[in-house]
C-alpha cells in the first residue's frame, strides 16, 4: 500500500508536473488569502494585511520551494537536471569534451588489452583436470642428464 502510494506519487510528480505545480500554487495562495481576509476583517488595511500575512507565512515562493524539496522523486529530478547541465557544459567546450573522451577511450582500451593478456596467461587455469600436475618432457643424453640433475 505504501509502496504503491509512493510510486504513484513519483509518477504524478514527474509526468503531471504542471498540474501538481498549479495545485500547489493555488493551495499556498489560498492560505495567504485566508490569513489576509482575517486581518482585513480585524481592521487592518488591505495592503498591510497582505504584506504581514506573506511575511508571517515566510514568503510565497519559499513555502512552495519547501514543499518541492520534500516531494518524492525530487532527488531523481535533481539527478536528471544535473545530467542535462553536464551535457550542456560538454557541448559548450568541445575541445575539453574530445580530450576527455579520447583519454577515457584510450585508457579503458589499454587496460582492457593488458588485462585480457594477463588473464589468459596468468590468471585462468588450464582447461583440463589437475592443471598443476602438467609437466614437461625433454630428451637428453646420459651426459647432459647427469650435468642437469647434479648427480654422478
Amino acid at each position: 500500500m505504501r509502496v504503491f502510494s509512493r510510486v504513484s506519487a513519483v509518477l504524478k510528480n514527474i509526468f503531471r508536473k504542471r498540474q501538481v505545480e498549479r495545485s500547489l500554487d493555488e493551495e499556498v495562495r489560498a492560505y495567504v488569502d485566508m490569513v489576509t481576509d482575517e486581518r482585513i476583517a480585524a481592521g487592518t488595511p488591505a495592503v498591510e494585511a497582505r504584506r504581514t500575512a506573506l511575511v508571517d507565512a515566510g514568503g510565497f515562493e519559499q513555502v512552495k520551494q519547501a514543499v518541492r524539496d520534500d516531494r518524492t522523486g525530487t532527488n531523481l529530478e535533481r539527478l536528471w537536471q544535473d545530467a542535462r547541465f553536464g551535457m550542456r557544459q560538454l557541448r559548450r567546450n568541445p575541445g575539453f569534451t574530445v580530450t576527455a573522451i579520447l583519454t577515457l577511450a584510450l585508457s579503458i582500451g589499454a587496460n582492457t588489452a593488458i588485462f585480457s593478456i594477463v588473464n589468459a596467461l596468468l590468471l585462468k587455469s588450464l582447461p583440463y583436470p589437475h592443471p598443476e600436475r602438467v609437466g614437461r618432457f625433454i630428451r637428453a643424453s646420459r651426459e647432459k642428464w647427469r650435468r642437469m640433475s647434479g648427480t654422478t
Binding site: 500547489l24 499556498v28 508571517d56 507565512a57 515566510g58 513555502v63 519547501a66 514543499v67 520534500d70
Partner: peptide, 10 residues
Amino acid sequence: KPGSLFPALH
C-alpha cells in the same frame, strides 16, 4: 508555519 506545514501535508 506554512513552511513546515505544507511540506508535511504533501
